[in-house]
Structure formats: C-alpha cells, structure tokens
Amino acid sequence: MTDGSTADPAGRVRPPAAARRTIRRERLHTLGFLAPFLVGFCAFFAYPLIATVYFSFTHYDQVNPPTFVGLRNWDYVLFQYPQFGTALANTLWLVVVMVTARVLFGLAIGMLITRVKTGLGTLRSLFYLPYLAPPVAATTAFVYLLNPGTGPVNQLLHRLGIPAPNWFNDPSWSKPALTLLALWGIGDLMVIFMAALLDVPTELYEAAQLDGAGAWAKFRHITLPTISPVVLFAAITGVISSMQYYTQAILAGSLASGIGASPGVLFEPGYPSGSTLTLPQLVYSLGFQHYNTGAACVVALLLFALAMAFTLLLLRRGSGFLTEEGR
C-alpha cells in the first residue's frame, strides 16, 4: 500500500500513522470539551447514586463505619415502617392533584391573558409576581393568610357566612391548602403557555371560523393539538417537582403547629397527623434526624424509581397526542 495504510491479520485496512494521529488529537479535543460535563456527571450523579445503592444495604449512622445488613433496610421501609405508606400516599396525591391543577390553571390563565385587550401588563404582572417570591417567604405569608383564627381569608369567609376550614391545621384540608399555594405561584406555567398559545397559527382559527366551529371546537381541534408538546413538558416537569416537594410542606406544617423554627426543638415532619409528610421529608427525617442512613437511602431510591416511572409513562402516553408538528 503506497499511502501508508497497513492491514491487520484479519485483513482490515488501518489508516496511515498521520491520519491516526489526527483522529487521536480530535478525540482528545472532544474529550476536553466533554470533561466539565463528565466530571459533573460523575461527581454529582453517578457517584451519589452508586453510594446510595451501597448504603441501602448497610447499617450506617454517619458516625460508625457502615456494616452490611443485606435486605434488612428494604424490609423495614416497605413492610415495617408505617410512615412510608403515608408519605407515599401524600406524594402520589400531590402528583395527581397538584400537577393536574397547576397545568389546567396555568393553561386557563394563559388563555385569559392572551385574550385580554386592556390592562394586559398589570394582569400579567399580578399573576407572575407571586412566582418570584422565595418558597420560604411565600409559604410563610400563605400560612398567615390561611390562619384559622386570625387569617384574613377565614375572617372574610366568616363575614360572608361561609364555614371556614382550618386549612393547615386540618388533615383533610392541608394538602388542598398546599395546592392553593402552588396555584398562587402559577407564573412560570402562565408564561410558558402564553408563548405556546401566541404561536398557534391564526390561519387555523380563521379557517375554523369559516367552517362554523365554536370556541370549544377550536380549543379541542386546534389549540390543544398544537400546544400538546408544551402541555406534556409542563406535566413532566410538574411531576419531577412534586416528587421533590419538601420546603413548602415542612415549613407550612411547622408554622401551623406553632413550633416554627424554634432552636433546639425537634420537629417531626407531617403535621397535622402526617397529612403533609412527603417522601423527601421522610429521607430527611430518617437520615438526619434519626441517623438511619440505610433506610433513608432506600426511600431515596424508591423515590427515584417512582419519578422515572411517572416520567416514562408520560413520555409514552403523551407522545400519542403529539401532532406531526410537535414530533
């Protein structure tokens, strides 16, 4: 071979030495560009995940070295720890109810604002500003507004002659109150849906108008199919966020119980009566309050698997509703 190429024993032609050096140099350049991602992926995802799997099979109190206990932690969490079922039920409730309510409410507000002719900027700001409030400040203000005794909301309901709930102090109303808090900060979904709705071709509405289609027919056959990728995105990100729901629930429970952030006081998450206990709170309680890191890792892995299952289900089911433009 006159171009410097060689053949291996199997008869495959190898490129010349200069070409091999060029290919090696290009691969090194590519690896250099990928290095920040690879380092971050290994340090913040791969290693923590592997360590979590390892600790789930050990007894580890964060003081003494971990000792292997097999499936004992899994058996304890799944079959002996009663709070796991409560936290799982609450988390699933938030996934089904809160995510659905946020998507529907965000879509409704987005459609409302795209049709408003006057005061658009003011109305858009009123709905978006609560989203900018930090979660701790927003939750604190919301607990005050819904205080059963002195809150403005209950006082207004009493004046109107409407029975006022106990909100965060009532197990049957605590999760609906958290849902109202999530709807209060609907600004993120409002902006996303506004952008999607404004991107729907007006020609489709004009053609439907000529065919005599009503408002519901236009929404069902034009608006919804066109923005279906955005609806799917909102549902998936909502499921992931609800699976990580921690700050608002634990802060609302602690404030409603009267404990708040009192120093030196151990607060068991879930007030009232475990109704606000979520799986992320259970990870914190087991791992950092009771120093049972093995059981906390089991809950974390189950939470990870549950989030993956919901995401894959939504991706599989939602892809059937995507139009050719959204695929």
Rank of each mutant, 00 (worst) to 15 (best):
W74T: 10
G121D: 08
L104A: 15
M1W: 03
R27Y: 04
V95H: 04
L156C: 04
L255K: 12
D188V: 03
L146V: 10
C297K: 06
A235H: 00
V298H: 07
M1Q: 08
L251M: 12
S241C: 00
P135G: 08
L28D: 07
L132H: 01
V143N: 05
A305T: 06
I23S: 09
P163L: 09
G258S: 12
G318E: 01
M190A: 15
Y271W: 10
T30M: 13
A295G: 11
C297N: 14
T202W: 10
R102W: 00
P148S: 08
T139P: 06
A138P: 09
L88S: 09
I250D: 05
F193A: 09
G4T: 07
S172M: 14
P66V: 06
Y47M: 10
Q62A: 15
Y60L: 04
G149I: 04
T2F: 07
L314E: 11
L197S: 08
V96K: 06
F68W: 11
P171F: 03
P263K: 13
Y128L: 15
V53R: 03
A164V: 09
P152E: 06
L302K: 10
R327Q: 11
G151C: 04
G185L: 11
Y284H: 13
I222L: 09
L157H: 10
Q155I: 06
I192Y: 00
L88V: 06
D170P: 05
D8L: 09
M243Y: 01
I186V: 14
T323R: 03
A46M: 10
N169V: 08
W74F: 14
L180A: 14
Y246K: 05
M194W: 01
Y81Q: 11
A164N: 06
I259T: 15
L71D: 00
R327P: 01
Q244N: 06
V231L: 04
A196E: 02
Y205K: 04
A309P: 01
F105A: 14
F321N: 02
L197V: 10
F321G: 10
P163G: 11
L88D: 04
M98S: 15
A307Q: 05
L78V: 07
A182F: 02
T58A: 11
A305W: 03
L224W: 03
D75R: 13
A234I: 00
A133D: 02
T140S: 15
Y54S: 14
A35Q: 05
L49Y: 07
P9V: 12
T276H: 05
A108K: 08
H158D: 14
